[in-house]
Write a protein that binds this DNA or RNA. Structure first.
Lengths: 182, 182
DNA sequence: TATTATCTACCTATCGGTAGGTAGAATCAA
DNA sequence: TTGATTCTACCTACCGATAGGTAGATAATA
């Protein structure tokens, strides 16, 4: 694997455990066994690194959403939650959650890119909820907007809570409960 | 108002807008118009300042909960949400949410104190939900644990989302929707 | 030989924190 | 009541560590 990719993988790990301001070029360089200055060959600035991370998250979310495209709505949501269960088990929090908290300390372009990523996830969720209503597996009077936001917010907050308490089961339990109300 | 109190107020503001690692003794000292070293007279270390903040949050939450003690359960939850609406309007996020995200970068004592604060809020919510069931205003089969966690997680995540999107109405809308399901 | 990827060595700014000092208010003993 | 002492709340000046970042030399490779 090339250095750039390894650097991105490490950054993703540190982002989701320590936050964007919780790791430095030094941290990544040390883990790679190269010098900090050499990392600047691959990423001109930390903002650049952050943007690359966000683009990667968005691309991999899009790839995933294409893979589950033909599934029924409840299966889609289940599959999505599975990704977050794994995160909880790994004592990680979701990238949006990390960057949301640090929001006001982020460079402008990262704010924009983060919002774009969020809106993509939100649109996907709304589509999936509408699909479920069409398929008659979700309640006919489901409030699409409010439910999509509730799902997003509770996943984001839930992962943070689970890590705080050191119990990933918490997260699993209340999200399962939430799905039942759809 | 004495310097210590003013420093705490400023710190609370910066904590909820920039995160615990997003402001420094210098930030606060500048805002107060005193020197950074003088701030160390009031707070030996940043951990000390953080602990003082957390204790203040907990104390004020306890005071508040005593004030609403005699209200019916739905009114209690409404009053609680009102506090968070104001936060959203102020483009702030909740202290637990900030510190949860930065969790792994916090000093040990702050982690403990944060967990204690969280457990207090959680216990209060569970009590209130049980009260509502007793009062027959909430569903009899309400899953107390899962619902308390869902409320906590969605408030925490919802405030972060609202700030990201720059729209406090989002938060108001989906929490209102959530209350209806109880 | 040109390009890619790394290096050494350095920069400025800021971080949390400390040492030592000082003006003025409060306290205490003769 | 007065003089000595201690306390409060600040100051200047510094520390080592680390942050993000840059310039320019060097090694490997195609």
């Amino acid at each position: 694997m090339d250095t750039r990719t390894r650097a991105l993988n490490l950054s993703r790990h540190y982002l989701q455990t320590l936050g964007f301001n919780g790791f430095s070029f030094q941290t990544i360089a040390d883990a790679l066994g190269i010098k900090k200055a050499s990392l600047h060959y691959h990423f001109a600035s930390k903002e650049d690194l952050g943007l690359a991370l966000l683009e990667e998250y968005e691309r991999s979310y899009k790839d995933w959403s294409e893979k589950v495209e033909s599934l029924p709505a409840p299966k889609k949501l289940e599959q999505m939650l599975l990704i977050f269960y794994k995160m909880a088990l790994d004592e990680k929090i979701c990238p949006s959650g990390v960057l949301c908290s640090d929001f006001n300390t982020l460079p402008k372009n990262m704010k924009k890119q983060l919002l774009k990523f969020h809106e993509f996830q939100r649109a996907w969720l709304k589509d999936t909820l509408r699909q479920g209503v069409r398929e008659k597996v979700f309640r006919k009077d489901l409030n699409i907007d409010a439910t999509a936001d509730l799902l997003l917010a509770s996943i984001q907050g839930g992962l943070q809570m689970a890590r705080l308490r050191g119990e990933s089961e918490t997260f699993k339990a209340f999200t399962k409960n939430l799905l039942k109300t759809l």
